[in-house]
């Protein structure tokens, strides 16, 4: 690590002000940033910890939606969302290990937009709204490729609002070392159609599988996608799996998610 200053503001306004300093960096749960700092791969002058911002904490239900504060940990989501949105709670309960879940936050995960992270699949698969200190961003506009989002410099995710589906499920086929998703598929059925979001597979990061959405919107069963195939073009090819393998897994995991959706 290089030396840095750290602040722990109590409000979004103070956090935004603190992030105005040159080379300042927001710190969520630190599950990506802290290892990066330890490797000396980043050198922020100042970390602005969001963990003390109470208005960014917690879970609330509101008119068919569930709103989760940006600084809410995975463990909190896992334990508090199960009654309303079980697929989302299950996803949170299977991120990392207990230490990761007790530190890592939903806002941190979405802001980082790791191409193999779980939360981006839930947000995109649910058509969630990313709420920042400045605006509300639809998930379809928010994710812009691997580690790239619509967030501007100094913009903070204060909350995420998920419309609660009729049925949903997340299937993660883990990369065995990191236990991130080698391929993860989030399927959610709403009254106006089905959304399918895929993480872990693509060089473009999380994305929707529109052919499957169309097929499943007409017939919500694993059989509906039996004749579809996934192109391996632009999928990730690394020591854990080829692009072809990932393409195959996208279809298998989608079928399993549909079968398991509740």
């Amino acid at each position: 690590m290089y030396a840095f200053d750290i602040e722990r503001p109590a409000s979004v306004a103070d956090a935004v002000a603190a992030l105005g300093t040159e080379d300042a960096q927001a710190l969520g749960g630190g599950q990506t940033l802290i290892p990066t700092l330890k490797q000396r791969l980043a050198a922020p002058s100042r970390l602005v910890s969001l963990s003390g911002v109470t208005e960014m904490q917690g879970v609330a239900s509101e008119a068919g939606n569930i709103r989760i504060g940006g600084a809410t940990t995975h463990a909190t989501v896992a334990s508090q969302v199960g009654g309303t949105y079980p697929a989302l709670a299950d996803l949170a309960a299977n991120i990392g290990d207990p230490a990761v879940r007790n530190r890592g936050t939903i806002g941190g995960s979405l802001a980082n937009n790791d191409p193999a992270a779980c939360y981006p699949a839930a947000a995109l698969g649910s058509g969630a709204t990313i709420i920042t200190n400045k605006r509300q961003i639809a998930a379809d506009d928010y994710f812009q490729g691997m580690f790239t989002t619509a967030l501007e410099e100094g913009e903070i995710i204060t909350a995420v609002s998920f419309p609660v589906p009729e049925k949903a499920n997340y299937q993660k086929f883990v990369q065995p070392a990191s236990r991130f998703a080698l391929v993860g598929v989030f399927v959610a059925k709403y009254s106006d159609g089905v959304r399918v979001a895929v993480t872990g597979a693509s060089n473009e990061g999380v994305h929707r599988w529109s052919a499957a959405e169309e097929a499943l919107s007409g017939n919500f069963s694993a059989d509906a996608i039996a004749d579809l195939s996934v192109s391996a073009d632009d999928l990730i090819n690394d020591l854990h799996g080829s692009a072809e393998y990932r393409a195959h897994l996208v279809k298998v995991m989608t079928g399993r998610a549909v079968a398991a959706a509740m």
Partner: peptide, 8 residues
Amino acid sequence: MTSHRVWS
């Protein structure tokens, strides 16, 4: 014998 190798 990773999943990928077995599948391949």
